[in-house]
């Protein structure tokens, strides 16, 4: 299993809907709003690097997500 940390900047009015959607994504172990430079932090456990690309694309396409930074386990 590969750990992944995804950091998101989102449109404030949509943050609740976004967090709900992220929590429902398979592999998401933890997701929360955060203080600081990023609005939402998500920790995921995924099969392989390919599924990281798929899930990262899925997260990026959620309405209201401005930008993300994906940190896959080395």
């Amino acid at each position: 299993m590969l750990n992944v940390c995804v950091l998101l900047k989102v449109v404030p009015t949509k943050q609740e809907a976004i967090l709900e959607k992220i929590k429902r994504i398979k592999g998401v172990r933890k997701a929360f709003y955060a203080y600081g430079r990023w609005d939402i932090v998500a920790f995921l456990e995924l099969q392989d690097y390919k599924s990281i690309r798929v899930i990262s694309g899925e997260i990026n396409s959620i309405d209201g997500v401005r930008s993300t930074e994906t940190l896959p386990e080395a």
Partner: peptide, 11 residues
């Protein structure tokens, strides 16, 4: 805790 690729080294 895990080492990562990207702008940071460990998360």
């Amino acid at each position: 805790v895990f080492a990562v690729l990207g702008r940071y080294d460990v998360v």
